[in-house]
Write a protein that binds this DNA or RNA. Sequence first.
DNA 1: TTATTATTTTAGGTTAGTCTAAAATAATTA
DNA 2: TAATTATTTTAGACTAACCTAAAATAATAA
Lengths: 217, 217
Amino acid sequence: MQTKSTEDYLKIIYGLGEDRDTVTTSAIAEELRISSPSVSDMIKKLYESQYISYTPYYGVRLTKKGERIALKIIRRHRLLEVFLMKFLNFPWELVHDEAERLEHVISDEFEDRLDALLGWPQYDPHGDPIPTKDGLVEKLEVLRLSDLEVGDRVSITKVTDSRPLLEFIKRMGLGLNHTLAIKTKESFDGSMVIRAGRKDHFVSREVSQNIYVRKVN
Amino acid sequence: MQTKSTEDYLKIIYGLGEDRDTVTTSAIAEELRISSPSVSDMIKKLYESQYISYTPYYGVRLTKKGERIALKIIRRHRLLEVFLMKFLNFPWELVHDEAERLEHVISDEFEDRLDALLGWPQYDPHGDPIPTKDGLVEKLEVLRLSDLEVGDRVSITKVTDSRPLLEFIKRMGLGLNHTLAIKTKESFDGSMVIRAGRKDHFVSREVSQNIYVRKVN
DNA sequence: TTATTATTTTAGGTTAGTCTAAAATAATTA
DNA sequence: TAATTATTTTAGACTAACCTAAAATAATAA
Ligand SMILES: [Mn+2]
Ligand SMILES: [Mn+2]
Ligand SMILES: [Mn+2]
Ligand SMILES: [Mn+2]
């Protein structure tokens, strides 16, 4: 049985490993807000337990065993987020922190029963796919709002699960499955004016890079 | 912010303090399955944090501050138990262990929203009263099945939350609010034959002491 | 290719929460 | 009341998970 810390490390390594291929000590340290020496230490332990493969001074990568655990925790996290929104009416910017703690203490039994209560959902409230019980995750077609051009009409399929971003999107009155059109796009900084419903909004590239969309019409 | 351990100690001390007036090191050690020296150690810390008052070699007692925390955790525990039964359909003998871990990680926000989802319940699945948010607990009239006599008809109002006992009661087809009549009672060991529905059951004093009832008719 | 800079690891330390063995104290029995 | 027994505390140790400061290594720039 792993600890909360182990689980958080593996989960973060999984997340970071989605873009980069090998994950550095400092990337983990930054993500977990833990000092690099501490991370270095923990890496050795994770390596000894065969959760990761590891080349000193180079980086880290999940083993099958490590990935299995990471995906299990991610599954729990996302199921919990769905529950928190659907049953407890938490706003979407708060579910993450709550799930972050609960994910470590629920049993397999709880996980299964919750899954059933929720009707076996496939996505979490931010559009992230929920891994299956045997560790399969849908690989999403990712198209960032920032990559689109003036005139494009799109629907929001996923957003980065970051509290300030979610609050911002909410203030614009937007959310998953909302459609919007791009009215202007500055070439030098990528900022846009988008039209959603009857309102125009200014969004920086910072924001548009973290809103994932699919084209409509 | 207290840790899981602190919370478990305070909760156990509260429970033990309900009968005895002052709680001993060994009682805590036994309940928590931790060695006496460890408990002795922790007692010093709890004392320094002013969660308990304490006389060496004699015993321990919650302060107002300690009791407040204990009741908060008990409140969470019992609310969670209700949720686990009502929404996740856990059997009543399994909810305790699950709640035991969850109680330490939910936020105030979660607690409030859960309370509302459940319709502000007053009792947990074992008949124990749920403390209010400001730390009030109903003091139950306790009448043990073991104290009653042949001919008495009673309704079950509360049972001790212990897995083997709950399984046993369940196997007899009994539960909270079920009525039963006492058919025989041995004076030398207190064992009884009770009639519930169309069936007779043999219950030892061990069991009848842990079933709380109220007389009917 | 050497020097500087950035990253990572090692060394040494801390805190919380546990343990076993031994000493201190209190309670019980003779 | 003295001796024995039971309980509690102290002493000394361990593990997990963190930290800062310093050393080692790798990457980059001169
Ligand atoms: Mn977490
Ligand atoms: Mn999410
Ligand atoms: Mn607990
Ligand atoms: Mn209960």
